[in-house]
Amino acid sequence: MKKRGYGIGSMWYGIGSTAATNPSGAFVDFLDDGTAIVMSGCADIGQGSTTVLAQIAAETLGVGLEDVVVITADTGMTPDSGPSSASRQTYISGNAVRLAAEKAREQVIAKAAEMLDLDPGEIRLRDGQVWYEEEPAGKTMIEVIAQCRGEGILTLGHGTFNPATTKLDPATGQGVPYATYAFATQIAEVEVDTETGIVEVKKIVAAHDVGAAVNPQNVEGQIEGGCSMGVGYALLEEVVVDGGEIKNPGLSSYLIPTALDMPEVFPMIVEAQEPSGPYGAKGVGEPALVPTAAAIANAVADALGIRLYDLPLTPERIVAAIKAAASSQHE
């Protein structure tokens, strides 16, 4: 018989290393022609950080995305931006890039104010133009940067950001381990075949508070990918170790989800703006996966009226749990 069930998994996740300093640095060089080079140690491993950092730099400098090139992850050229881990790069390296871009921008704004005889506090840079009170002020950014460079002022910026944390008390763990947290709730719908023990995940709704989405498509991609890894964690994946030896050291014996194993995923972006984040952003990389197995496990328990306490929820375990429940009912 096939039984359907629904389960909720909620989670929180502290952004950045736990109760440890984990700074990031960035350099920005705002060039003569109004384009810019950003240097960040942040390693893009597929999550899309290079694109996100380019967006933050472009936004801050008031130029287009095509005007920014980001040089990353080269210890001979870029400052230390710490690991691409702990879902920290958008928040921490994003802030470092924002601060570096602000430093470069300030110099352009100061010079523009001087050239136009305006209050620098009211000047904005946008679309390659200098703006004053929501109107173009009559100078392009290129003209201002040329003036700076002509006077020997290089429009460079350096930024560092280290999240505000404290150490934790070793006996009680009390303290501030993270400057901010991401949150999420996922709801899974499953169908369990009570004969075979096979669980099919039909749908997952995944709502993630990311602070603000710098790149919504990237955020969705992280959520969808996280759900897929979560389906594997809940149902399929286990490195089998016997006598210290891995018995399934290959992709034919260690199975991860294929396109046919994936349910329809409904990613939802919730934006509870983080004031200390770059443009309100926090992070999403790990949260995407964290509650998925929990939601699936709760959905399986809902479907069967029997709860399993060991991951993964393999067909063998499910059939055994159904049998055990049936025999204990007979007693």
Binding site: F183, M268, V270
Partner: peptide
Amino acid sequence: HSVGISATLEAAWEKAGRVM
């Protein structure tokens, strides 16, 4: 600030009601 867990719970629940 930026404590969005309640918002994710309500958003997911509302959406799930429609798609499930």
